[in-house]
């Protein structure tokens, strides 16, 4: 039971990060039906910028929370510029091109961003300075840190803010109008290009926050950290129903929990010693108390993709998504 709770908490934290990254994918997808493949790289840049600022200020005597806030608020504008540049350079000229064209430029841009980051920040793992003291709380036998709690709460706040923005503000209305029908929205006086650019910038800002979250949770930043994170967040967005803001949240948290529980239990589930009659040769080793698992927790990365394939095959619209027509 303790293992279960522990994995659940870890999964929720991880899921909160996925959810915030997934918001970036889902917003862009919602407005122009494009997979912003380079979004993971934006998250990475956010983590890197925050790393630089936090390292610079680590010994300045400022309160730790202020340092992290300054780091984040430096990362956000940088990421917004990167997001905007992505849209201008790689996506806008191809808005009416066949679907695969922007996907290919996105891959190109993500390689470029990765290697530019590598030139700037080196190819090593960069350790975030541990300025915030980690406090551990005990909940029913499982331990939870203050950082984990902050990450989950922050994720909920961002999510709420985004929902408010999309549904209650003028900007949100014009964004939704653009999503529904760009041409008609344009005729109604909505500046489509501006709305799309703003969407990218907001997605990138969320990415920056997610980057700081990952950095402070794992304590490490790396120039390739964005690729896998981005992919999993995309899986989360699809799981929740891509284009749907609450969906990204649900998908992210769910995927985080699936991954954590999967990694925690797959060893026991595929323990060959549970079925000793199948493998007579193993009986002796099992009797000695050994556990011979077919798969271990090192298969964690596989779950996200299995979930993705399962969702796309069984329910392509995701958990909360509406059925979208085939626009290929």
């Amino acid at each position: 039971m303790e293992t279960f709770l522990q994995q659940l908490f870890n999964g929720l934290t991880l899921g909160a990060v996925y959810a915030v990254v997934a918001l970036g994918y889902t917003m862009v997808y919602g407005i122009i039906q494009l997979i912003n493949f380079a979004h993971g790289e934006v998250v990475m840049i956010g983590a890197m910028v925050a790393f630089t600022i936090i390292t610079l200020l680590a010994n300045s005597g400022l309160p730790p929370v202020a340092i992290v806030l300054i780091g984040t608020s430096c990362a956000i504008p940088v990421c917004m510029i990167v997001g905007y540049a992505l849209e201008r350079i790689a996506y806008r000229p191809l808005r009416n091109a066949p679907r695969l064209a922007p996907l290919i430029t996105a891959i190109g841009m993500s390689i470029v961003l990765q290697h530019v980051a590598m030139m700037v920040w080196s190819r090593n793992n960069l350790a975030f300075p541990q300025i915030i003291k980690t406090e551990t709380y005990d909940i029913a036998g499982a331990s939870v840190t203050n950082i984990q709690i902050v990450i989950v709460i922050l994720c909920l706040v961002l999510m709420g803010g985004l929902l408010w923005l999309v549904h209650r503000t003028r900007l949100g209305i014009s964004m939704r109008a653009t999503a529904q029908n760009p041409r008609v929205a344009g005729l109604m006086g909505v500046n489509i290009n501006r709305e799309i650019a703003i969407t990218f910038a907001i997605g990138a800002a969320l990415g920056a926050v997610a980057g700081v979250m990952v950095g402070s949770y794992y304590g490490i930043a790396h120039y390739q950290m964005g690729a896998l994170l981005g992919l999993k967040a995309f899986c989360a967005a699809v799981l929740g129903g891509i284009g749907n803001v609450p969906g990204a949240m649900v998908g992210g948290l769910l995927l985080g929990v699936i991954e954590a529980l999967g990694a925690g239990y797959i060893g026991d589930l595929t323990d060959l010693c549970a079925v000793p009659w199948l493998f007579a040769g193993l009986a002796a080793r099992c009797a000695a108390g050994e556990h011979i698992s077919l798969f271990g927790s090192n298969y964690q990365d596989v779950f996200a993709f299995l979930v993705l394939i399962a969702v796309l095959v069984l329910r392509p619209s995701g958990l909360l998504g509406e059925r979208v027509g085939d626009r290929a």
């Binding site: 699809v238 798969f295 993705l308 095959v313 626009r327």
Partner: peptide
């Protein structure tokens, strides 16, 4: 996966590549 639309298919194939690599590693 072939019923999927182009860009989804791309991501799934990407995932497949990663899965194969994880298995080779483990």
């Amino acid at each position: 996966t072939l019923k999927l639309r182009g860009d989804y298919l791309a991501i799934v194939t990407l995932g497949f590549g990663e899965i194969v690599r994880v298995f080779l590693n483990n």
